[in-house]
């Protein structure tokens, strides 16, 4: 097992090294952090449409990884593959492996429910349940069998604090979550994801439906969350990727064109298409 892990790390470092020939030594990769997700020759089809082609990507612990790319490039499909939500589309077929902490997520020994407990997700549009704020945040814990009121109370408070919204809602935990603003709703959704104490948080364009002030709040929050969680975020907004992420992967037409330190992607990209995209020439 240990050997396998070492081999993986070596492989991974090899991939990164080949991608970062002109790497700035100041932004050197922290060699010690472990990979959480690794896609290996991952392919995905929607019916006949080959949406993801030979994806090889590694995401590491306690980092924010951004996935950017023009519409329809497969970035949402990819992030939804990581917690197997993409399989809700009936015509999806996959090939290749996605490894989560040394375990293939498509392996039968790992149930989707277990995977999704460890890999939380925040969606593009705030999607709270039509329930009270308390019930929204406690939902995940209840689903996983936690019933004790005292424990639930603590989980709700901790999660709401973690999502930087506790002070705004502590006096109205029993109010319907639909009464909150879009930005608050999205932070409730983040709190809801935190409540099951995941390992990785996937965010699919978490701020695209929000105003600039709410966006800033959520970006600040992501920086705090990074200390405890690994975050993979899909974003349409290149400035956002540049601001918040440590690593950036550029997807184009179902391929990973380039994956590197965010600084390299934005300042010194290797591929012409990456350069064109990040400089706003297309997309």
């Amino acid at each position: 097992m240990a050997e396998l892990k070492m081999k993986e790390e070596l492989d991974m470092n090899a991939t990164i090294n080949t991608q970062t020939e002109k790497k700035d030594p100041a932004s050197g990769i922290v060699q010690s952090s472990k990979p959480v997700f690794e896609a290996r020759d991952f392919n995905l089809w929607y019916g006949d449409n080959h949406a993801l082609q030979n994806i090889n990507l590694t995401f590491k612990e306690n980092e924010i990884s951004a996935i950017i790319g023009p519409s329809g490039c497969g970035k949402s499909t990819f992030i939804k593959s990581l917690n197997r939500m993409v399989e809700l589309v009936p015509v999806v077929r996959t090939e290749g492996d996605i490894v989560y902490r040394e375990q293939n997520i498509f392996d039968k020994s790992l149930s989707v429910e277990e995977l999704r407990t460890k890999v939380g997700m925040v969606f593009q549009k705030p999607n709270p349940f039509p329930k009270s704020i308390y019930d929204n945040v406690a939902y995940g814990a209840r689903v996983h069998g936690i019933r004790k009121k005292k424990v639930l109370d603590q989980i709700v408070e901790k999660s709401l604090r973690g999502a930087a919204i506790w002070d705004e809602v502590k006096d109205r935990l029993n109010a319907n979550a639909y009464g909150l603003s879009g930005g608050q709703q999205q932070r409730i959704c983040i709190a809801r994801a935190l409540a099951i104490e995941p390992d990785v948080i996937l965010m699919d364009e978490p701020t695209s439906a929000l105003d600039p002030i709410s966006t800033t709040k959520i970006e600040d929050l992501m920086q705090e969350l990074k200390e405890k969680y690994s975050i993979i975020v899909v974003t349409h907004n290149m400035q956002q990727a540049a601001r918040i992420s440590d690593k950036t992967a550029f997807f184009y037409q179902g391929y990973v064109v380039e994956h590197d330190d965010t600084k390299v992607i934005f300042e010194n990209p290797k591929d012409k298409r990456t350069e064109d995209y990040v400089s706003g020439r297309f997309g």
């Binding site: 939500m85 999704r116 407990t117 969606f123 549009k125 709270p128 349940f129 995940g140 689903v143 099951i196």
Partner: peptide, 17 residues
Amino acid sequence: PSSVREASTGMGATKWQ
């Protein structure tokens, strides 16, 4: 709305839950 379905499924809830 399918968004709340996804939210629930995405948290590891089973179909029946």
